[in-house]
């Protein structure tokens, strides 16, 4: 599984980071990005799906 954050949509709610800090980085302005190239280790897939389902701006998506 691989995910990405659309930074034009991200408004810094930080819900992804709250649910899966291993998968996201947040800069000083609140904008989120994926750690590394966005590849999600199998044991964190469930949390990645949670992050996707909790983003109020629909800014996170699965890419493949």
């Amino acid at each position: 599984m691989k995910i990405r954050v659309d930074q034009d949509k991200c408004q810094g709610h930080a819900r992804c980071y709250g649910l899966a800090p291993e998968l996201f980085d947040i800069d000083d302005y609140g904008t989120s990005s994926v750690v590394g190239d966005g590849t999600v280790p199998p044991e964190l897939e469930e949390r990645a799906l949670l992050a996707i389902a909790n983003c109020p701006e629909y800014a996170i998506e699965e890419v493949d």
């Binding site: 408004q11 709610h13 949670l50 389902a53 909790n54 983003c55 109020p56 701006e57």
Partner: peptide
Amino acid sequence: MHNRHVAFGSGI
């Protein structure tokens, strides 16, 4: 588990 709330607003 699924809680896309907007207590802190939405958008810019």
